[in-house]
């Protein structure tokens, strides 16, 4: 798959964990950042990055190519992946 997937997640968030598991089940590669595990200096920068992507800053935020999906929504993720 050529579509690049990047996720902003929290290590404690179950819907984030479910999203990671769902993408693994689809066998698609993805990168993720567990924002809660970043240093206090790194967090504001990443939060601004998410804010620049979407009005609603929430977790997980999934960047699939040019598309953004917020929340654990398998149907939306499949659609964004063209599956």
């Amino acid at each position: 798959m050529d579509i690049k997937i990047k996720m902003f997640t929290l290590s404690t968030c179950i819907y984030c964990q479910n999203t990671k598991a769902f993408l693994k089940s689809l066998d698609v590669p993805f990168d993720y950042i567990d924002v809660d595990l970043l240093t206090p200096d790194e967090k504001p920068k990443i939060m601004r990055e998410i804010r620049n992507l979407t009005a609603s800053v929430s977790f997980p935020t999934i960047v699939i190519g040019e598309k953004i999906v917020t929340g654990y929504r398998p149907d939306e993720i499949r659609k964004a992946l063209g599956l």
Partner: peptide, 25 residues
Amino acid sequence: RLLNSLLINKERYGYMACPCRLAVN
């Protein structure tokens, strides 16, 4: 799983912050 995350946040921040949101300590 959520209760486990709440206990992690209690340990991390001293209070049970919502596991689905970013706490600022």
